[in-house]
Amino acid sequence: MPARDALSERLIPLQRLRPGDHAFVSYGDDEVRWEAVTAFVRLGLARGEKVLVLPSPDVPEEEVLARIDFPSRSTVRARRHGQLAVTSMRELIRPDAVFTAARQMGQLHAATDRATAEGYTGLRAFIDMGWVAALGADVAAMARRETGAHALFTGRPYTEVCAYDRRRFDRAVLTAMEQAHPRVALERLGSLRTVHGPDEAVAFVGEADAANQAGFVRSLEIALSRTAAARRLTVDLTRLHFLSVGCAVGLLTLARGAAGHDLVEVRCDRGQHRMLRRLGADAVPRLAPREVVRPC
């Protein structure tokens, strides 16, 4: 469904997170949680980052590793060499027994520096917020940490996902925590969201693949209908993790047939721009692909 709230600008696929990003994600299903953890870990390892996983305290390390490694033992080497570690908030703040934002952030700041000194490209951490109840932490203190952690991220090679189990936190806390994070990750891998901006601009977030092609094309048809009077439409593809050839062809076909429009501007990254040109974008007079770089 289209979204028009403040969330729209912060929503991003988990696979598009990069150093400096601090993201909220929530889940209400254990399988969804493990999909997110596994993708986050494997992408970090592939990018040469050091990776920390802080699971919910009630989940044993053996289960975490079994989930991440399924169906193969792909992280054994990374664990052996110290690139991947499963730890806990209790370990992170040691020797302190009580959580404080200053102690936690200081430890993560130092861990990021150690990671780069060891030759890694940065540090990323997946933190399941089940630790809050386990340590008896104050929710207000946690909120202050989430809104005041800029020094961990600004200009630094650190990426963090804070995962909230909707079965453990009430709705007011979840809403506040979602608003406290600069980024909000899509809950499900493989999903596609359509969000609308000023002047009926349409942005796609997630994966525009074969499974989502009908929805992708339908959203474009609706956007073209809504912008008929203005005679121009802006389409933003920069928050897609994947754009299939079928969806790209659908976009070109609709732009070619949009006789009532003077301009269909497509904001895209380098790979998407290359694909559109190879598929014939230059032959569509009213189509204007524009390569953009996400601001740091």
Results as ranks from 00 to 15, higher is better:
242 F>A: 09
177 M>D: 00
76 V>T: 15
64 V>Y: 06
155 G>D: 04
90 R>I: 04
42 R>A: 08
127 I>M: 09
83 Q>R: 05
183 R>D: 04
238 T>H: 01
152 L>I: 03
218 R>H: 10
146 E>C: 08
2 P>E: 13
16 R>K: 14
134 A>H: 01
280 G>K: 06
145 R>F: 13
154 T>M: 15
61 E>N: 13
225 S>T: 12
80 R>M: 13
15 Q>I: 12
193 R>H: 14
263 L>V: 14
63 E>M: 14
233 L>D: 01
28 G>A: 02
263 L>H: 09
1 M>F: 12
218 R>D: 11
207 E>N: 10
196 H>R: 15
55 P>H: 04
91 E>V: 07
271 G>K: 04
100 T>D: 07
238 T>S: 10
88 S>K: 04
225 S>L: 12
276 L>K: 05
92 L>Q: 13
294 R>Q: 12
117 A>Q: 14
106 G>S: 05
81 H>A: 14
93 I>C: 00
39 A>Q: 09
94 R>G: 09
71 P>G: 11
291 E>K: 05
162 C>F: 01
58 D>P: 02
84 L>Q: 03
60 P>A: 08
103 R>F: 10
16 R>Y: 02
37 V>M: 04
53 V>H: 00
95 P>W: 00
33 R>K: 13
165 D>L: 03
295 P>Q: 07
167 R>K: 10
103 R>N: 15
121 T>Y: 10
79 R>T: 11
253 T>M: 13
125 A>C: 11
120 Y>H: 05
86 V>H: 04
30 D>M: 14
142 M>L: 15
107 Q>V: 11
224 L>F: 01
85 A>R: 10
194 T>Y: 06
197 G>R: 06
27 Y>T: 03
24 F>A: 01
197 G>Q: 04
289 P>V: 00
195 V>L: 03
97 A>E: 15
261 H>E: 04
232 R>S: 09
23 A>V: 06
199 D>K: 14
244 S>E: 07
122 G>A: 01
110 A>E: 09
19 P>S: 03
37 V>A: 01
119 G>M: 02
43 L>V: 11
262 D>F: 07
152 L>A: 09
91 E>D: 15
255 A>G: 11
193 R>A: 14
5 D>P: 06
67 R>Q: 08
203 A>M: 06
261 H>W: 07
118 E>M: 09
292 V>T: 03
71 P>T: 15
